[in-house]
Design a protein around this nucleic acid. Structure first.
Lengths: 146, 146
DNA sequence: CGAAATAATTAGCATAGCTAATTAAATGCA
DNA sequence: TGCATTTAATTAGCTATGCTAATTATTTCG
């Protein structure tokens, strides 16, 4: 099967663009005073509801010891609370506090505002293109092969 | 000024898509045995040619001490070489070795293949859309406001 | 009941980010 | 000219985030 040169070029540009985009919003996240791993884990807890440590680690694609420490940080900052699972006392249940929910919405708002401000400079036709492209990319990422 | 709801929604989706995309390719990068910061810096050196430490730090949007250590790692791995700038002996010139170039191409190939395989499942019209969207996003990211 | 499995944590290592302080070299001005 | 300032890079030392291996507590199962 011959490799498609232009397809690989597109993939490369896509990769590079994603890196630059995230690097840019990272600045806003830094303003919240909470690191990226914590922010991301908090997001899962806020939107997904109470969850065990192992499940949270799996959701964030990190190992349990890593997640244990991330939760330590979130707990110390008062953004989540640990409690023992009553029906299996080995397990913990991690839940967002009201502060945790507020903090997450706040951070998301900053990120999104910043990106939106930049996107606002594009003509409507290009915005439509971005919109369609996102759908396409998500579809491609969700596919199995590769 | 009224906030544009759909624009923020687009920004949010864009952000989320970028995260998922990079999480996916991170797996391939890990196979190279070289960390993401080193890989990214190496990429700048390989494609941009010899560069000073400060310029490289700026290009990678990190502080000079951070870049100094990243270059330490790359040098130790034999992927780049440091030399003194003859016309200003305070400065160093960082250059990719043949090994460095080979390693980068190798890693890039893995990443790109993986992404390309997924993109290949999209119809031509959607690929064209992705292409245009990337241009638009890069233009938006490069803009000053925000 | 005791062995094995499971959930989480602890310990210890590497990478990657930062600021502050240091070293070496170049620039600049009295 | 010569000394002070600026600039390039590094060193030192902190935090955060990733890992594996080992420990602890609890549950499950033969």
């Amino acid at each position: 099967m011959p490799r498609d040169r232009s397809l690989e070029e597109l993939a490369d540009r896509l990769h590079s663009t994603a890196i630059h985009l995230l690097r840019m919003v990272r600045v806003r996240d830094a303003e919240t005073g909470i690191g990226p791993a914590r922010l991301s884990a908090l997001s899962v807890v806020v939107f997904g509801g109470p969850i065990s440590l192992n499940d949270l680690a799996r959701a964030e694609q990190v190992k349990p010891p890593t997640m244990s420490r991330i939760v330590d940080g979130l707990e110390e900052a008062g953004l989540v609370a640990r409690s023992t699972n009553a029906s299996d006392r080995r397990g913990v249940v991690i839940e967002a506090t009201a502060e945790g929910k507020a903090m997450l919405q706040e951070g998301r708002r900053r990120r999104v505002r910043m990106l939106a401000a930049r996107l606002a400079q594009l003509p409507k036709a290009e915005l439509a293109s971005v919109n369609r492209a996102i759908d396409a990319i998500q579809k491609a990422l969700a596919s199995k092969s590769g």
